[in-house]
Design a protein around this nucleic acid. Structure first.
Lengths: 202, 202
DNA sequence: CCTACCGATCGGTAGG
DNA sequence: CCTACCGATCGGTAGG
């Protein structure tokens, strides 16, 4: 039980808490995270949970940051080997659809859940969620702009329009899957992206 | 203070509670509705609030039903005078965009908020929200099918694909407005619908 | 990491 | 519609 091992163990415990928080928040929202529920799930005390963070807000922010880390690993990284521009855009779309299909977050798209929950609640959670969303949009914009520069997309492509519609296809897929509204949702999403990309190419 | 007047007054109070609940739920979700908050806002006692409903669940369902009534008044009715088919579809889209612009619900699209909140929580709230969503989709499907029968839309129009993409445009508009991501969101939504409808016409 | 505890708030009830 | 109350749970702290 050297100090080094204790510190490592503490960090491991912290990671267990944060990971459980991501799963819980993706299903019921960041507000549904309570010290008591996490403590019970991890068979530890409430003070053992909160001790790693200081306050519930800091716990919520740690959960949000962990969700971002998962998103990078599951959506950004798998597409990173593709060349910037149209190729990477296609890979990002596929990785995004795949992360929903694979149930990376048990409650569907984590950021839809949290941004919908906090879009009208000013504070650090809203600020961070909004900032991460902007970064994702900027990353998509980069790929689209590069596709225009490469001549893959038409020179008069409206980048913001493409982002708006692509976001809609992602939101609709999550919404339709979460509510079990249409078993063909995945096909509709793919068809929508194909049409959107095809429209940019001519 | 005849019984008749008392009953009318009670109904009026009940309506005040439910209306306050719709506003609160559109912003913070149906779960954020608490007897204490509504009681304080309406300067009455908690028991005075719950007395009209019996349980919090019944209050939540009453709030959800009132939100549906508002939706009918603000989106369905304004488009009902248009002929079924393409004309009514256009009016529904305009009325939907308009209800967001006018801030009919202070927290944006009420049903996005509640379906996102409850899509993973089995129970009456999820069931009712899902059922109302299905009804809305069926109503859209009617207009699209009629447009096909009228010859306004191509015979090979995929009705479910159109609903999927139209839902995406609505979700994206709400999302983008709620997070102040792009001041041109309304234009993007209109352009998206124009493109979607144009694609069905040829 | 724990136990033991704090004040606040939750949904709901009793009795009027 | 009210006051007065119930047990449960909330976030958080003290002290170890």
């Amino acid at each position: 039980m050297s100090p080094r091992r204790s510190a490592a163990h503490a960090q491991q415990t912290r990671h267990l808490i944060v990971t459980a928080g991501v799963d819980l928040a993706s299903v019921e929202g960041l507000d549904a995270i309570t010290l008591g529920r996490l403590a019970e799930e991890l068979t530890m005390s409430k003070s053992g949970v909160i001790g790693h963070f200081g306050s519930k807000l800091d716990l919520q922010l740690a959960v949000l940051n962990e969700a971002v880390r998962v998103y990078r690993r599951e959506v950004i990284v798998p597409a990173a080997h593709a060349a910037p521009g149209l190729a990477r855009l296609r890979k990002l779309v596929e990785a995004w659809i795949s992360h929903l299909e694979r149930g990376v977050y048990p409650g569907g798209c984590f950021f839809t859940q949290v941004t919908t929950e906090y879009d009208d609640r000013p504070g650090p959670v809203r600020d961070v969620a909004r900032q991460r969303t902007e970064e994702w949009r900027a990353y998509l914009a980069e790929q689209i702009s590069t596709a225009v520069q490469d001549g893959d997309f038409s020179a008069d492509t409206d980048v913001d329009q493409v982002i708006f519609e692509a976001t809609g296809l992602m939101l609709s897929l999550n919404h339709t899957m979460q509510l079990d509204l249409d078993p063909k949702a995945i096909q509709h999403a793919r068809a929508g992206f194909e049409r959107l990309i095809a429209a940019c190419m001519r």
